[in-house]
Amino acid sequence: MRIAFLTAPEGVEQVELTQPWQAVTDAGDSPELVSTKPGEVQAFNHLDKADTFPVDRTVDEVSPDGYDALVLPGGVANPDALRMDEKAVAFVRGFFEAGKPVAAICHAPWTLVEADVLRGRRLTSWPSLRTDIRNAGGEWVDEQVVVSHDGSGTTLVTSRKPDDLRAFCEAFTEEFHKAGTGAKAA
């Protein structure tokens, strides 16, 4: 499976990128880093700069058709920047429209709020997003991992914080493989 990881040029929480990336690799799948700008992504350890990671493609160059699933890492600044980029929001929305699985952790559901894909869904996130998720029609719960399915066949896996990463990675890799979307890589 080919899995897109969408991040802004800076602000992604490093561990929320690297651990899911490793989980995808360990599952025998191919992760690809997609961002709104070419070059490198500046990751953070909370508020401190961490490592940089090379961007494989930009949202201008891709579509959900080229991927089997999407992972949205958190970090406060990362989803805040993504939700201000129309092409990034459209890219995310496209996975839901195509019925492809999506995984989001911590602050990443902010991008899902902007994509208007949370109505009727049960999910979790960093607690400060609770009101935003409810205002977007979602049901926010304080649980380690939440897996929700909708009528279109889209599976959404969400988690609250870095402490939940092990359970998050196990859940989304299992759900991605169950989904068996069969999308052809571009």
Results as ranks from 00 to 15, higher is better:
residue 55 V to T: 09
residue 142 D to Y: 02
residue 145 V to W: 04
residue 94 G to P: 09
residue 12 V to M: 12
residue 33 L to H: 12
residue 113 V to G: 05
residue 167 A to C: 01
residue 148 S to T: 13
residue 97 E to K: 14
residue 156 L to P: 11
residue 93 R to C: 07
residue 175 E to Q: 14
residue 162 P to G: 04
residue 127 P to N: 08
residue 93 R to N: 10
residue 60 D to L: 09
residue 75 G to D: 01
residue 94 G to H: 07
residue 24 V to E: 10
residue 26 D to S: 12
residue 164 D to N: 13
residue 151 G to D: 15
residue 23 A to H: 02
residue 82 L to G: 00
residue 106 C to L: 04
residue 28 G to N: 10
residue 110 W to D: 06
residue 79 P to K: 00
residue 161 K to A: 11
residue 9 P to K: 05
residue 68 D to F: 08
residue 114 E to C: 01
residue 176 F to S: 10
residue 144 Q to L: 14
residue 92 V to M: 05
residue 182 G to V: 02
residue 129 L to E: 00
residue 157 V to C: 06
residue 167 A to E: 14
residue 167 A to M: 03
residue 111 T to H: 06
residue 28 G to A: 02
residue 105 I to F: 03
residue 137 G to W: 13
residue 47 L to I: 15
residue 21 W to K: 02
residue 94 G to W: 09
residue 129 L to T: 00
residue 124 T to I: 02
residue 72 L to R: 02
residue 180 G to I: 04
residue 71 V to E: 13
residue 10 E to P: 04
residue 55 V to L: 10
residue 70 L to A: 05
residue 64 P to E: 15
residue 71 V to R: 15
residue 55 V to R: 07
residue 2 R to H: 13
residue 113 V to E: 06
residue 172 F to G: 04
residue 78 N to D: 01
residue 12 V to Q: 08
residue 37 K to S: 14
residue 174 E to P: 07
residue 166 R to Y: 12
residue 75 G to A: 01
